[in-house]
């Protein structure tokens, strides 16, 4: 980016935070973030498709390295779900695998240097391209509110409509009619806090991580063959590398947290108060 002399720091940051959008209707709401959608589709297909390619050929014979790796991942997820939820894992298991794989793949894009992405997208003629779908609130909220509807669905399934409504009014304080309103208010807050916190946590972590990469990249834009310029370039390179290494942990951790919390919330929906 240093080559384009007219670029100001705020331009640089704003540019990297811009989505490639397409309008599909009237008003600001009816736009699609093409980069987010395409990246998340590709990553979902690569991640889950890759697992599927191994899984469909999986046999009970002595497994090869690839199958062993996939089975280790499978058993890790399976055990995690089993620890939280004692019932059948025929749905929660694949849900957890989907969440972990997809979120991990999307977060992984954060490790691609942002200026490479910009260079390639500019080369292809796209005015803007955000490579990390999980830094888009639409992605994280789409997932967390899907989980929210699953929570509602499983609450109905486990307790029946009457039981669910009954619990909304009588838990956690008690069934005294005077307490119905406080109970309901608290339950609604609790129910809504789950998807909001789930979506905001992933978004916030990835967005903040991305922002730090941008600031370090900005430091790199003033690199030149002067003493100060060399210092800035060196610091940018070293700090970007260090942050990327640390970010590997965050990427995995956030995928894991999203998976575990989703399973915990749905498992809680099965519990009677």
């Amino acid at each position: 980016m240093a080559a384009q002399g007219t670029l100001t720091p705020s331009d640089y940051i704003a540019h990297h935070l811009t989505n490639l959008t397409v309008k599909v209707g009237e008003g600001g709401f009816w736009t699609l973030n093409l980069d987010t959608i395409i990246m998340s589709w590709v990553l979902g297909l690569v991640g889950l498709g890759g697992i599927w390619l191994v899984a469909k050929g999986a046999t009970a014979e002595v497994p090869g390295r690839l199958q062993s790796f996939i089975e280790m991942f499978f058993e890790f997820v399976d055990n995690t779900v089993r620890d939280v939820f004692p019932g059948s894992r025929a749905f929660l298991g694949p849900l957890a695998i989907t969440i972990f794989t997809w979120v991990f793949m999307m977060n992984l894009m954060d490790l691609i240097p942002i200026d490479w992405v910009a260079t390639v997208s500019h080369g292809l003629g796209a005015p803007a391209w955000k490579a990390v779908p999980s830094t888009d609130l639409n992605t994280t909220f789409a997932m967390s509110f899907s989980i929210f509807f699953l929570i509602i669905f499983f609450s109905f399934k486990a307790k029946g409509a009457g039981g669910f409504v009954h619990e909304l009014f009588t838990a956690p304080f008690g069934s005294n009619p005077l307490l119905w309103i406080p109970n309901l208010a608290l339950n609604i807050i609790e129910l809504l806090a789950k998807p909001v916190s789930l979506g905001m946590r992933l978004f916030g972590n990835m967005y903040a991580g991305e922002l730090i990469f941008m600031l370090l990249g900005l430091l790199g834009t003033i690199a030149s063959f002067t003493v100060g310029g060399l210092l800035a370039g060196g610091a940018s390179a070293v700090l970007t590398w260090g942050w990327a290494v640390f970010h590997i942990l965050i990427i995995l951790l956030q995928a894991f947290i999203f998976m575990v919390l989703s399973v915990v919330y749905i498992a809680m929906a099965h519990e009677h108060h």
Binding site: T21, V24, G25, G28, F29, W30, T31, L32, N33, T36, I37, S40, W41, G44, L48, W52, P94, L95, I97, T98, W102, P133, D136, L137, N138, T139, F141, A142, M143, F145, S146
Partner: peptide
């Protein structure tokens, strides 16, 4: 927040179904 939300929710549902 824009219509991408719905597309991503559908993608998520598709991936879950696939898994």
């Amino acid at each position: 927040i824009n219509a991408t939300l719905f597309v991503q929710a559908l993608s998520f549902a598709f991936l879950i179904w696939f898994a």
